[in-house]
Computed example of a mutant assay.
Amino acid sequence: MARFVKRGNVWQYEISYKDTDGKYKKLRKSGFSKKSEAIAAAGEIESDLFKGFNATSKDILLSDYFEKWINTYKKDKVSDKTFNIYLYSLKIINEYLEGATVKTLTRSVYQEKLNAYSSKHSTSSTRKINIHIHAALSNLLDEGVIKMDFTKGAVTIGKVKPKDEEDKYLNFEEFSRLIQFVREKLNPLYATPFMVYIASLTGMRYSELVGLTWDNVNFDNNYINVKRTWDFKNNSFAPTKNKESIRRIYLDGNTLYEIKKYKLSQEKLFKKYKVNPPHDFVFYNVRDGLVSNSSVNKQIRKLCKKLEINEKLTCHGLRHSHASMLIFEGINILYISKRLGHKSYNVTMSTYAHAIKELQEQENINMKKVLEKLSRSK
């Protein structure tokens, strides 16, 4: 219940309420020139208290809260690569939302700041920032510290086209030629072509490939066991991108034969030159050790040039090519999603919408033929 007192020329309200710990407390605020203003302000506070809003909690800078949130809920619980993405979001908050607090920031002001960022960045980048801030605010909403999620309904359309190098892929004929060509050049002296070969036939991410050890290649049951990645920064193994990325990738007998042949040749070579890798890595060069991302991308460009393939492809592009090939060959999309280690089926659908659309167009033709056959009069 609110009580109103005039102190000098201004009015003050005093609200008695029971806190979450069951104790009675008082909330006061003065400085209102009219009693009606104090009554209106007190009414709003009482309404918030009734709804469970924590009116007495201190305001805090969004940047300070977000930093505390990522250190509490994300650090050491996600990969270093993923945590660095959250740190980038913190950098953007400090740059574009400097001085903004969790209680005073409105949707319109937040949108203005988001627009400023999106004018210089892509849609995917803008959307990621908004998703991170939205996730952090959920705790404040649940605890009644803030009444409104100012990220809700935010427009996240960027004005800068994203880099599309990694989104490029080869068609079936080009991809087939690349695989055949690189298979003929497999040599344990050079691990990079072998990585190109395996990446093409598995769709594995670069970090998964470089972290692959021979004990995770199951020759008896024809699969590669993906259970970790390699972190060059910390020079150690790291978790996969998500729990769904821990998976078995099955291969055909011909591919396993080439892998086994390469393994035997590699063992002889390492023994000859007395090479002792720190771990039993699959993709390890005699002279330079583990294959770098730049080396494999350079090798792909070199191979494409020899094959007169104009597409500027990367290692991630081989992953796209592998998935697109499976889609065009009619492999079930759920199986493809699991094979790629996507977090959800929706990720696969959105990432390969272009290939799925082309396949649907072909299916429309096939369906037409089926219907014509069924409706044909005898």
Score class of each variant (00 low, 15 high):
residue 147 K to W: 08
residue 89 S to K: 03
residue 179 I to N: 01
residue 93 I to G: 02
residue 377 S to D: 14
residue 194 F to W: 07
residue 229 T to W: 06
residue 148 M to G: 00
residue 188 P to A: 06
residue 120 K to I: 14
residue 352 Y to V: 02
residue 178 L to Q: 00
residue 135 A to I: 04
residue 13 Y to V: 06
residue 309 I to A: 03
residue 324 S to T: 15
residue 76 D to M: 07
residue 170 L to V: 08
residue 39 I to S: 06
residue 47 S to C: 13
residue 333 I to C: 00
residue 325 M to Y: 15
residue 69 W to N: 02
residue 26 K to Y: 15
residue 138 S to M: 11
residue 284 Y to A: 02
residue 22 G to M: 11
residue 332 N to V: 14
residue 239 P to F: 13
residue 142 D to P: 00
residue 80 D to C: 08
residue 113 K to A: 08
residue 142 D to R: 11
residue 78 V to Q: 03
residue 48 D to A: 09
residue 302 K to V: 02
residue 313 L to H: 02
residue 201 L to Q: 11
residue 182 V to Y: 01
residue 63 S to E: 14
residue 22 G to H: 13
residue 229 T to Q: 09
residue 192 T to H: 03
residue 306 K to G: 05
residue 61 L to A: 12
residue 107 R to L: 05
residue 183 R to S: 11
residue 312 K to H: 14
residue 320 H to R: 07
residue 372 E to R: 08
residue 2 A to Y: 02
residue 173 E to H: 10
residue 102 V to L: 05
residue 160 V to K: 09
residue 320 H to M: 03
residue 272 K to C: 05
residue 297 N to D: 14
residue 165 E to W: 07
residue 330 G to Y: 14
residue 19 D to F: 11
residue 80 D to N: 15
residue 174 E to C: 08
residue 251 L to Q: 00
residue 355 A to T: 04
residue 110 Y to H: 10
residue 167 D to M: 09
residue 226 V to G: 05
residue 213 T to Q: 09
residue 133 I to N: 01
residue 250 Y to G: 05
residue 39 I to V: 15
residue 243 K to T: 14
residue 49 L to P: 02
residue 227 K to C: 15
residue 366 N to P: 00
residue 189 L to N: 09
residue 199 A to M: 13
residue 42 A to N: 01
